[in-house]
Amino acid sequence: MKNWMWVIMVVLINSVAHGQEITATGSAVLVEDLEVSRDNAVRDALRQASLQMGGSIHSSQMLVDGLVTSDQTSLKTNGQFRHVRILQEKISHGILEIKLRAEFIQEGQCAMNEGNGYRKAVAVAGFALQSPKQAVLGGLQNIEQHLPSVLANTLNGHHRLHAMDSGNVLMFNSVDRAPSSQNNLQRLSNSVELAKELGAQFVVSGVIRDLDMINPDAGVPQIWDKPLNLIGLSREKRMRNFVLDVYVHDGISGALMFQNTYATAGEWEYDDYAKTGFATPIFWKSNYGEHVKDVISTVVDDLNSNLGCQPYMAKIIDAKGDFIRLDTGGSVGMRPGDELTVFRTSTFYNLDQQGLTQLHDTKVKATITQVQPRFAIARLDKTASRFAIQREDVVVAW
């Protein structure tokens, strides 16, 4: 995936309680498309980092009549990398060399401590229809707003995420270019605005790619229907597609954190004139509705596992003296006495002069003193002005 390394959160940390930082260098041959070379160099650096952390390379060959018909090499690790940051890029003699730093998390660590215990605030935006005409059958035009509502309600039934329904907001001007319609770093600037408005750490959005019938003529009566029934055979079932792209953007930087495509198909049991609507009782009772419900459950599971282990972050609304007001509250599980770390935000630029959000650890601790439903107040162990802590900086809990 092009520019995939920017999908990972661009957070710089000096020490982490639940992971180990590692620095590695990778290289790739410089080709015409710089992003391709950069992707390959980052992959090589992460491969080197994996080997440093005990990973192993496995290779296998299949021979038929003395000829190699299959040659596969794979890398296995006992954990995963997150918070990858590019430290240095250098081009020399046609080779792009990248030095990066990443945090290595062993498998199972987050499952044990559930990240940090806070519910991450998630804004669920509208899901645009790629082909609105496909929604006419069954009267499913309400799916753009009702799917986010169903998704948000289902997410709130779990303990890791606090979802807010924003189905009336569509994130993409052109669904054909989603999720990177704003720039080639797959950042979405309007996701930052929506996150700021709702106090969300992440923004979930997506595109409904396909609602079309697989075999639209299957329900048309045929002269051979009766003979087939006599021998125990029935007419072909009318099957309908459901293909959904889901994206998650970071509310602070707008970076793409997660994306996946989900596809299923189910029997559409209604005629061409029935108007069930999306997410109605009659819709859920159908075979097609059951398959859609299974997809939504899978999406919820993926969002919980991918976002639940992320560091908790909240923006600073204002700072005065030793106190700061945070864009968070009791709904995420914040309680008086909780301690978080203050990070200062800044922007750095890559080789293409594109700005990326970076966080700097100030080592300043913020202790929650008051919690309201929509905001919280924290006392700093050092004066805010001394470290230039201000609006738009963030607090982090690992």
Score class of each variant (00 low, 15 high):
326 L>C: 02
358 Q>N: 12
292 V>W: 02
366 A>C: 09
92 S>M: 09
353 Q>C: 04
167 G>E: 06
157 G>Y: 01
112 M>R: 13
275 K>S: 11
352 D>A: 15
57 I>V: 15
246 V>R: 06
370 Q>F: 05
374 R>W: 08
148 P>D: 06
242 F>A: 02
16 V>N: 09
302 D>T: 05
175 V>R: 02
268 W>L: 07
150 V>A: 13
197 E>F: 03
359 L>W: 09
349 Y>D: 01
102 A>L: 01
139 G>I: 08
396 V>S: 07
312 Y>M: 05
8 I>C: 07
211 L>I: 04
50 S>V: 01
142 N>I: 02
57 I>Q: 11
86 I>G: 03
333 G>Y: 00
182 Q>K: 10
45 A>S: 03
222 Q>W: 01
229 N>C: 01
63 L>G: 00
313 M>F: 12
382 K>A: 13
10 V>N: 10
55 G>H: 04
53 M>F: 04
72 Q>K: 13
51 L>W: 05
371 V>I: 03
144 E>Q: 15
53 M>V: 07
3 N>I: 01
286 S>T: 15
360 H>S: 12
212 D>Y: 02
44 D>A: 13
299 V>Y: 09
385 S>P: 00
119 R>Y: 00
320 K>T: 12
239 M>C: 01
194 L>Y: 02
194 L>E: 01
300 V>P: 07
386 R>H: 08
226 K>I: 11
140 L>C: 04
369 T>E: 15
38 R>L: 11
352 D>S: 14
344 R>T: 14
121 A>Q: 10
147 L>Y: 09
390 Q>R: 13
110 C>D: 14
394 V>P: 06
292 V>Y: 02
277 G>W: 07
195 A>T: 00
104 F>S: 04
115 G>N: 03
342 V>I: 15
203 V>D: 04
179 P>R: 06
323 F>P: 00
286 S>R: 03
38 R>T: 08
349 Y>S: 08
82 R>C: 09
27 S>H: 02
167 G>L: 06
121 A>W: 00
27 S>I: 03
380 L>Q: 05
132 P>C: 06
130 Q>R: 15
99 K>N: 08
34 L>A: 09
24 A>N: 02
394 V>Y: 09
66 G>N: 05
186 Q>G: 13
293 K>P: 00
314 A>W: 00
322 D>Q: 12
167 G>S: 07
200 A>T: 00
95 I>V: 15
5 M>C: 08
183 N>D: 15
398 W>I: 10
383 T>S: 11
392 E>V: 02
323 F>K: 14
240 R>H: 09
279 A>I: 02
188 L>Q: 15
257 M>I: 14
295 V>E: 07
231 I>D: 08
379 R>T: 08
308 G>K: 03
74 S>I: 11
281 P>H: 07
139 G>V: 09
165 D>A: 06
99 K>F: 00
319 A>D: 07
23 T>S: 10
101 R>F: 02
264 T>F: 05
182 Q>Y: 14
130 Q>E: 14
361 D>I: 01
195 A>E: 00
101 R>E: 11
232 G>Y: 03
122 V>E: 02
245 D>N: 14
270 Y>R: 11
318 D>A: 07
329 G>M: 04
90 K>T: 12
289 G>M: 05
130 Q>F: 09
205 S>D: 11
84 V>H: 01
114 E>P: 00
220 V>F: 10
350 N>S: 05
185 L>Q: 14
293 K>W: 03
207 V>I: 15
133 K>S: 13
362 T>H: 01
91 I>W: 04
279 A>L: 04
192 V>F: 04
121 A>K: 15
182 Q>F: 13
